[in-house]
Amino acid sequence: MTVDERIKSCRVHDALRELAIRKTPEMMKYQPNPDLENAEMGYNLPKEIGKVRLLRYLGLRRTSIGRLPHSFGCLRNLQTLDIRNINRVIVSNFIWKLESLRHLYAYKMECDVPLKIEGLRNLQTLSGIRFDDIMHNNMITLTSLQKLGIWVDDGSDIGKLCMHLSEVGSLKTLRLYCNVRREWPTVCGLSKLHHVTELKLCGMGLTTLPPDFPSNLSRLSLSFTRLEHDPMPALEKLGQLSFLKMEFSYWEPQLVISTHGFHQLKFLELNFQHGLKEIKVEKGALPQLQCLRIRKCLSLEKLPEELKYISTLEKLELVDMPEDLISRLDADMISSIPNLRIF
């Protein structure tokens, strides 16, 4: 750490201590919400942080903090805690005490014992929690939970997880992450999650699509997967799907969208599909498409001709695409799409 970085770290540490000694409501109501994102901190938070009883927000994203002190359990008014660090963050078993907590963002949060989160009736967002910690809690008690992000591994039983979450009626968004060095477990049972409308699957070990999806799914993201077969024949049958994003997800040369496929899809993004050479869109496909974004598909040779005949298409965005492809765009394609944007 440089001299300047040490000075900055000391100032951050001193600022936290200063917050901790403010005791009267008159002084506390003027205190700032500490956002220490990217702060160079070569140590963990001081235990005095627990004295900042009226603290509502604390941002520690991309810091080097590896452990939160026991005194965090005293922050009964804390509503948002952001600990999305590059490395894991170890917490003591105090999360269940944060009765006002609404949003908890983590990258990989770990506890020496199964993490207790039951009874947090105000919690709306829970991100970066481990599979085992979810399975050790009665999730029905989280009556306000809307967004949930879980780390799974090759030993996780996704079927049991879906059954465990099936009665969490408030849950709308589910994100499943798998360590890129591990093989995905079998992803099944998603159809039990009737309330889930948004799903994200992320991890290089995912080579095949799940056999089922939530029946009311409207938004789907596939990121950093390695699908071995064209996913479109399965995905285009999802009757409620209006948003589809694929990022580093498919490495084969062709995608085919069949006649009348994706009859509700309004937004499609293909991002970093490095092996993709051809997108084939059959007549009558994508009848509701409004926006198509293609980004860094460096092997793509041309755009599908059928795009010219999709009357609903309002915006076509080409981002960091090969100059050869841009130069081959014909006049009909350019004139038929109201908003063609090239970045």
Rank of each mutant, 00 (worst) to 15 (best):
residue 3 V to M: 08
residue 4 D to A: 14
residue 10 C to L: 11
residue 15 A to P: 01
residue 15 A to S: 14
residue 17 R to E: 13
residue 21 I to G: 01
residue 22 R to P: 01
residue 24 T to P: 08
residue 27 M to R: 05
residue 35 D to Y: 07
residue 38 N to R: 07
residue 40 E to H: 08
residue 42 G to E: 11
residue 49 I to T: 02
residue 53 R to L: 15
residue 56 R to F: 11
residue 61 R to Q: 13
residue 64 S to E: 12
residue 65 I to E: 07
residue 66 G to W: 04
residue 67 R to G: 04
residue 75 L to A: 03
residue 80 T to H: 04
residue 84 R to C: 11
residue 85 N to K: 09
residue 86 I to V: 08
residue 90 I to N: 06
residue 93 N to Y: 06
residue 96 W to K: 09
residue 97 K to F: 14
residue 98 L to P: 04
residue 98 L to W: 10
residue 99 E to G: 03
residue 102 R to M: 09
residue 105 Y to E: 02
residue 106 A to H: 14
residue 107 Y to R: 07
residue 110 E to L: 12
residue 111 C to H: 08
residue 123 L to M: 10
residue 124 Q to W: 06
residue 126 L to H: 06
residue 131 F to Y: 15
residue 131 F to I: 04
residue 133 D to F: 14
residue 133 D to Q: 02
residue 134 I to F: 12
residue 137 N to G: 10
residue 140 I to P: 00
residue 149 G to C: 03
residue 149 G to E: 05
residue 151 W to Y: 12
residue 153 D to T: 06
residue 154 D to A: 09
residue 154 D to S: 14
residue 156 S to H: 09
residue 159 G to C: 09
residue 159 G to H: 13
residue 177 Y to Q: 11
residue 178 C to V: 15
residue 178 C to P: 01
residue 179 N to C: 14
residue 179 N to G: 10
residue 181 R to I: 13
residue 182 R to M: 14
residue 187 V to H: 01
residue 188 C to R: 14
residue 195 H to S: 15
residue 198 E to S: 15
residue 199 L to K: 10
residue 203 G to K: 06
residue 206 L to P: 02
residue 207 T to V: 15
residue 207 T to W: 02
residue 211 P to D: 14
residue 216 N to M: 09
residue 218 S to M: 05
residue 225 T to K: 00
residue 225 T to D: 05
residue 230 D to F: 00
residue 242 S to C: 07
residue 244 L to S: 12
residue 246 M to K: 00
residue 247 E to I: 12
residue 250 Y to L: 04
residue 250 Y to E: 04
residue 255 L to I: 09
residue 256 V to D: 11
residue 257 I to H: 00
residue 260 H to P: 00
residue 263 H to K: 08
residue 265 L to P: 02
residue 266 K to W: 00
residue 270 L to P: 05
residue 270 L to Y: 05
residue 270 L to R: 10
residue 274 H to P: 01
residue 274 H to L: 11
residue 278 E to S: 11
residue 281 V to C: 13
residue 284 G to P: 09
residue 288 Q to K: 15
residue 289 L to R: 02
residue 290 Q to K: 13
residue 292 L to W: 02
residue 293 R to I: 01
residue 294 I to D: 06
residue 294 I to T: 06
residue 295 R to I: 05
residue 297 C to T: 12
residue 301 E to L: 13
residue 303 L to N: 08
residue 315 K to W: 07
residue 316 L to R: 01
residue 318 L to H: 07
residue 321 M to T: 06
residue 322 P to F: 11
residue 326 I to L: 14
residue 326 I to Y: 06
residue 327 S to D: 15
residue 330 D to G: 05
residue 331 A to V: 13
residue 332 D to C: 05
residue 341 R to M: 08
residue 342 I to F: 08
residue 343 F to W: 13
